[in-house]
């Protein structure tokens, strides 16, 4: 069973977005995504300053059997990336919604989150996919 916290929004491509109190957003991949990939061996995150469009491929997660692009669910500028993932990609396997966050953005528009899936809608998508 896949864990889907209620305090954030989701993209169909299995990323989560959390709005921080100061208006920035934090982005990572979901529990379902990390389970499907298996033990991660490498993570590549975007450099601060990079301007991302909604749906743009901006990071890569790699296990021994698969490599996946991570797409930014919303448009914005990268402020910070999670440097700890470089030496410890397993943080995503262990705590994908916490210590396994991937990047923080200054969103072009915070309203963009509204267009993403809520927890129930994402759970319904997973159920439909057979997960």
């Amino acid at each position: 069973m896949s864990h889907i916290p209620a305090d954030r929004r989701y993209a169909k491509s299995h990323e989560w977005v959390r709005l921080l109190p100061d208006g920035r957003v934090e982005i990572g991949i979901t529990d379902h995504a990390q389970q499907a990939l298996g033990d991660l061996v490498f993570v590549e995150v975007p450099e601060p300053g990079r301007v991302l469009g909604a749906g743009e491929a901006c990071a890569v997660v790699e296990s021994v059997k698969a490599a996946s692009d991570v797409y930014s669910p919303i448009a914005g500028t990268v402020l910070e990336n999670n440097a700890d993932l470089g030496g410890a990609p397993e943080l995503i396997n262990q705590d994908c919604y916490g210590k396994g966050w991937m990047m923080r953005l200054q969103p072009v528009s915070p309203d963009a989150l509204d267009a993403l899936l809520g927890p129930e809608a994402y759970a319904a998508q997973l159920a439909a996919e057979g997960g």
Binding site: V41, F42, E62, S63, V64, K65, A66, A67, D69
Partner: peptide
């Protein structure tokens, strides 16, 4: 064999 995720049989078009 390692770092196979770079290769065509996994990454295909990428």
């Amino acid at each position: 064999l390692t770092l196979q995720a770079r290769e065509q049989h996994i990454r295909r078009g990428k």
